[in-house]
Amino acid sequence: MFNNVKILYHQGKQFIPDVTTVEVPGIFRGRPIISLEKVDQSKFVELCPTDAISQNPLCIDLGKCTFCGECARVFPNKISFTKDYKLSVNKRENLIIKEGEDQPIELNSELIRKEIHKMFGGSLKLRQISAGGDNSCEAELNAAGNVNFDMGRFGIEFVASPRHADGIVITGPISENMAEPVQICYDATPNPKIIILAGTDAISGGIFLESKAINRSFLEKYPIDLYIPGNPVHPLTFINGVLGLISRKK
């Protein structure tokens, strides 16, 4: 007993008091800023491993970007990654960051279905499906529930069965061999339900977009409620994204 108390005492305070404002350590690659400097734009298109960069104007699609940092490394004056981890959107096009833009990424509140706040505002139970995910996003979603990030304080939790869930969170590009289980899991989730895509692989296929072994037809059938970029998704990106979706807008 005494040992336990000692261990508890030695942990100090581990939880992050405010997950919406805390600063992340080091050199996190979050929301990019593209300057208006003139450069040979075709070079970017060549260098990006996932075709996330398009030209005229120069844009980065955060749904495709693997946050490898190569573009900023080669053209530091043109592209820089800020430590802003709030990257989630509910409209796919809003993940495209254009030259000269420097404003926070936010959800479009008009597009959030009415029932979401009403039904899930105080408690959201999610079923996670890894569909060809490489276990990095999965690890970070687990971390979102640990004592540091403590997502449970907002009533957001992952549950063991789709039947207990209010929605699904897909990670991974959706491998052909997981296409059917994804559908079965979605069907087993009671209405109303939401779909969240977590991580670059889930949002666009990421580096695996052109692999013949993936099958993304499920995503064409249903509206997506939330896109959370990252490779993997940072726990703070995830928590802030979900909070943006379920909390009431002023």
Partner: peptide, 17 residues
């Protein structure tokens, strides 16, 4: 279930990055 065709994909993607 997780098969993404990695080995084949190494050959299809030509750029080192």
């Amino acid at each position: 279930y997780q098969h993404r065709g990695i080995e084949q994909y190494f050959l299809e993607k030509k750029n080192l990055l």
